[in-house]
Design a binder for these strands. Structure first.
Lengths: 298, 298
DNA sequence: TAAAACGATCAATAAAAATGATCATATTAT
DNA sequence: ATAATATGATCATTTTTATTGATCGTTTTA
């Protein structure tokens, strides 16, 4: 397949005839004929129906056209990239941060990096849960920073820090718990929590097959799924349930007593969740990506 | 730009040398040199650093390589499509249905279509809200069926039917309302509903700028966002709030008294929501798509 | 009914790509 | 150290490919 052949094909479709296509892309009509013929012979398909005066796309030709358009837009992207690169326009370094990692600690380190390398432009996006690693796989980011959830052997990673996770609940709900369940202090039994929903952050966009990584689920409790930590926090503050939260997000609410940290029997109520810096193992890394990786690496 | 040049470039990157690249793609080394040189001159960039013995990618070369890989995968898609088309493999017709439209009425019409055209393979996906129209724009579907939300002038549509929307609430909550608010029958005042959350289906994946289409929001009430109608139904059945629902989804719950239809003052409590069949205006349509469109059109 | 536009075809020509030989240099192996 | 091997650039030559202009039989348009 030659690009010029595809260009000729598209020109014919869009101008409606071989001749007009020829003038449109500055070639001669026989040249267009040859290009179409070559495509048709190469794949053993009929792109145009020549029975009528004007060439009309066959069903196969229609599918081929749509895909051809995609190909050509990809070509144009590559060509404009080529031209941009000659003018010193670098590709931005794309970082995807898990909401969980938005601590001043981590952000300051990134800010230091930007100050150290002011010529490197950073594209920073945020995501939740597996979504962070998915941006790597979908080539929407070069480096991701997030929890261990959803990693497999395609990912390489290094631990950056840990986030203190704490199990919290609204004081009203806690009181309700104690009046029903029994003891007013000490550890809470798992059974006591069953009637109260656990609020979890989920990624509803993709139904993930493997449920690994959810090591912090209460086995039979009711569960609520929200889309991000802010929604989770809102629900918590309104007393809709209990949840595990990064301490830095709800620190002020803990201090003011709007939320209470609780301790559950046989359940990792507070824990240090590792935050990883992640990249794809088999992908060639840009120089900027390597600089960032080495700078952030502990 | 020639495809062979890009292929040569990628081969060099992946094999590590011009000579090995030559053998890998069955060309000679001078040919590879010429290809790379041509690319470099065309865009006025340096792809490889030749100072060292082995050619190593420059920063520009690295960016160019990543984009080149994408291009080539697009090429392979087109080529395999070409070969498939010759063996009579048609592209499936991709329909995206809003969850709201999953009435037996609509589904039966689609089933009739499949029986009428057994050779046309249908790919059916479902989505929520704007997500349905987005599949069109992202070229993930050929025809969408869903509500009016999020349409703009890129879309062409025709009304298929209407779905009866009804405002419902859990009987316990209704009782609570009446004891607090006053009357035990007749219309409910908007103010009475403020303390009870309205449950809405949202599309959290994309933060949509224009809030048009949400004509059924109570101005100052609390709001809950869930990802689909099933979640909404679950919340309703558990008495978490009130919501507007397609009648066909909760018909049985209304009959059994698990949910109660309510009437709110100055609020379109029950209404007929139009369900549209939607396609992109400027996109060439496949024969299958036209067949489907004409069949479904009232 | 005449004129214009269409696509297919073909021999001739122009352009481009691939080739093989050769060179200077860098890396290995001995 | 030294010989052997491997690397990329260069160039004249050949081969392949693309393009052209002319022409033919149609179909559409005026």
């Amino acid at each position: 397949m030659k690009l010029d052949q595809v260009r000729a094909f598209i020109a014919v479709v869009e101008t409606g005839s071989f001749r007009s296509a020829a003038t449109a892309i500055h070639k001669t009509q026989p040249s267009i004929s040859a290009s179409i013929k070559s495509l048709e012979e190469q794949y053993d398909i009929l792109l145009f129906d020549r029975d009528s005066y004007r060439p009309t796309l066959t069903a196969a030709g229609h599918s081929f056209f749509q895909q051809s358009k995609k190909l050509l837009s990809q070509v144009q992207q590559l060509e404009s990239l080529g031209h941009n690169l000659s003018h010193g326009v670098d590709m931005p370094l794309r970082i995807c941060l898990s909401q969980m990692t938005l601590t001043s600690n981590c952000m300051q380190k990134i800010k230091q990096f930007t100050q150290l390398h002011p010529h490197i432009s950073l594209d920073i996006t945020t995501g939740h849960m597996h979504g962070v690693q998915e941006t790597l796989l979908k080539d929407q980011s070069d480096i991701a920073i997030g929890p261990r959830y959803g990693l497999d052997d395609r990912h390489a990673f290094t631990e950056l820090m840990t986030v203190n996770m704490v199990t919290v609940i609204h004081p009203d709900l806690l009181e309700e718990l104690n009046t029903i369940g029994g003891k007013s202090s000490g550890k809470i039994k798992q059974q006591q929590l069953y009637p109260i929903p656990q609020i979890l952050v989920s990624n509803p966009s993709r139904s993930n097959k493997n449920n690994d990584g959810y090591q912090h689920l209460l086995a039979t409790g009711k569960r609520w799924f929200v889309s991000d930590f802010n929604a989770k926090k809102t629900l918590l503050l309104n007393g809709f349930g209990w949840a595990r939260m990064p301490r830095h997000i709800i620190k002020e609410n803990l201090d003011s007593g709007e939320l209470i940290a609780i301790d559950i029997e046989q359940f990792a109520s507070t824990s240090e969740m590792p935050v990883l810096m992640i990249r794809l193992r088999n992908q060639t890394r840009s120089h900027q990506a390597n600089l960032f990786w080495d700078f952030m690496k502990p």
